[in-house]
């Protein structure tokens, strides 16, 4: 019996636009098991980002409950939410979001410093993480001295800084070319398998599907379908064979 790391029960979320109430999520139920690689797919405006932010503790539902590691996030105060973001969740962004004024190493050590680790151990672990993502010799570089793919690798190392249970990746390949994007996907997949980290990514990128254990399709604020790996390979295979015929 595997452990459920994220449980979303009957979540509704609506945003107020002036006097109009705009529903973004209309009753979403979802359970995510620990250590899996999940992709959330859906067109823009489908509620994908809203669901993603909810899972990441960045937003609270209008009604319904979101449990992260069996903790109801609606019950947490600002301090506890910050703590959750620091220790339990690692974030990866489409635009990399490295702190521009800091070197690669400083970017990776910052979450560890927030978590109260002393400087020496943080540096040691930071170097280790950078080595793991293949940037051992680039630790002194500032973000603008690194390529997009390298920046995203630093971001992956930073996301792992406090050994989170969950990595949330928001379109991690959106600003990368095909090859670099594929490298980042491989890296994430490898981490998810090796470190038993749950990877959840919101994406448009069909390359993601090949490595996902599960794909959650969102449409109009509801879950349209959840496909497992085995079902998926067939449909991807069909796309491939169709592409070949053309």
């Amino acid at each position: 019996m595997s452990h459920i790391i994220i449980r979303v029960t009957n979540v509704h979320k609506s945003f107020k636009l002036g006097r109009i109430e705009l529903p973004a999520l209309r009753g979403v139920n979802l359970e995510i098991e620990k250590g899996r690689y999940i992709s959330i797919m859906g067109p823009s405006g489908s509620g994908k980002s809203t669901l993603f932010n909810m899972i990441g503790g960045l937003d609270k539902p209008t009604s319904g409950k979101v449990f992260i590691d069996e903790v109801d996030i609606a019950q947490l105060d600002a301090y506890e939410l910050a703590w959750l973001r620091c220790r339990k969740i690692g974030y990866i962004f489409q635009t990399f979001n490295l702190i521009q004024v800091m070197t690669a190493l400083e970017n990776v050590t910052l979450p560890m410093i927030f978590a109260g680790m002393d400087q020496e151990r943080a540096v040691e672990k930071g170097l280790e993480l950078l080595k793991m993502v293949g940037l051992a010799d680039r630790f002194r570089h500032k973000p603008f001295e690194l390529s997009g793919g390298q920046q995203q690798r630093v971001a992956v190392a930073r996301a792992l800084a406090n050994d989170p249970a969950i990595i949330l990746a928001d379109e991690p390949t959106g600003n990368l070319d095909l090859t670099t994007g594929a490298e980042i996907i491989d890296l994430l997949k490898h981490l998810s398998a090796e470190r038993k980290v749950t990877v959840i990514s919101a994406t448009h990128d069909f390359k993601m599907l090949n490595v996902s254990d599960q794909v959650v399709w969102i449409r109009d604020g509801r879950i349209e379908k959840i496909e497992n790996r085995d079902e998926l390979s067939i449909s991807v295979g069909q796309i491939d064979s169709r592409a070949l015929q053309d």
Binding site: R85, C86, R87, Y91, N97, I99, L110, P111, A115, N162
Partner: peptide, 16 residues
């Protein structure tokens, strides 16, 4: 804005 938001995602408190 993005830098501040990122720091908050990494666990920064308002007072930091």
């Amino acid at each position: 804005v993005r830098e501040i938001g990122t720091m908050k995602c990494l666990g920064a408190l308002d007072r930091f």
